[in-house]
């Protein structure tokens, strides 16, 4: 019941002027891996969105006179089987990968947040039923659902984002639910309820603002996973449809070429996926430690 706290857990407060956010920023900046990750993401965003302006290439027409060229001064990373400049294609495909990853990651977190917060705060039967639905969703491996739905709907980029978001909200919903469960039993929420505050106030003023850090961390990891997932679906031939492409699609197209020694068709997109996914995971790691929230290890 009333566990006695040791006298002495709290004595003096921290020095004035150090806000929670500034403290988190300071801790984040000390995590070198996370800072490097942030740099990598910024570089790739510039590369994919500003790059085409500085290095314009034709990614719509085939150029059959210049297929499968190795890297040279004219084509820094060579050309692919239909004559697209590989460096330009890397920017073009990266735009799709990043866009899909960011949007789908954000969408998944928003859905998961709403579901998890309601389940956690409501508790009881509502919570049990909502969480069994999450269990069921998790039991169907995401890649399988994605393939089936993609086979049925043949989605475009926005459709892909919607499908990815609807498939991957489950894990964040569990995290947010756990967070809500702790927060709703915090003393300040209990106090608010005891003096007549409404549930709405408890959720909007206390539970959600205090879950922000969990949500931010979850989003970062979701983005990394979404980029991976879309790369898998594209690789399996059911992702972004040509002529559009993403890094997964490029890898898929370049796979056979790699066996015949045309490494430039597979190494750049492969390295790009690895770097970006690593970067988002490193940022997530850094943010989690900086905010001191629980997330995945």
């Amino acid at each position: 019941m009333s566990a006695v706290l040791s006298p002495g857990q709290i004595e003096v407060g921290e020095p004035a002027g150090v806000t929670g956010l500034r403290l988190a920023v300071r801790r984040f900046r000390r995590n070198r891996l996370a800072v490097v990750g942030l740099g990598v993401v910024v570089l790739f965003v510039l590369f994919c969105f500003v790059g085409p302006v500085l290095y314009p290439t034709d990614q719509t027409h085939t150029a059959l006179h210049a297929v499968n060229l190795p890297p040279s001064a004219a084509h820094l990373l060579g050309t692919d089987a239909v004559g697209h400049d590989e460096l330009g294609r890397l920017m073009y495909g990266g735009k799709v990968s990043l866009l899909v990853g960011l949007a789908a990651g954000a969408l998944a977190t928003v859905i998961g947040m709403a579901w998890g917060a309601v389940a956690g705060y409501a508790g009881g039967w509502t919570d049990s039923v909502m969480m069994r639905v999450v269990d069921a969703g998790i039991a169907i491996p995401a890649l399988f659902v994605l393939l089936v739905v993609s086979a049925i709907l043949s989605p475009g980029i926005w459709g892909m984002i919607a499908i990815l978001g609807c498939v991957s909200w489950l894990v964040p919903s569990r995290l947010i639910r756990a967070e809500t469960l702790t927060l709703k039993n915090r003393d300040y929420v209990l106090t608010l309820r005891a003096i007549g505050g409404t549930h709405a106030r408890a959720i909007t003023r206390h539970v959600l603002p205090n879950s922000v850090s969990t949500i931010v961390v979850a989003t970062t990891f979701q983005i990394a996973d979404a980029i991976m997932l879309v790369a898998y679906v594209s690789y399996l031939g059911l992702g972004i449809r040509p002529p559009a492409t993403d890094w997964g699609g490029m890898l898929s197209a370049g796979l056979t070429a790699a066996y015949s020694g045309r490494w430039w068709l597979i190494v750049p997109p492969g390295v790009a996926v690895i770097l970006v996914v690593c970067a988002f995971n490193a940022i997530g790691d850094g943010l989690r430690d900086a905010f001191d929230v629980r997330g995945r290890a």
């Binding site: 009333s2 706290l5 857990q9 709290i10 915090r186 003393d187 300040y188 003023r205 206390h206 205090n210």
Partner: peptide
């Protein structure tokens, strides 16, 4: 009881 958890 808890001075930390009592204030948001």
């Amino acid at each position: 009881q808890d001075p930390v958890a009592s204030l948001d």
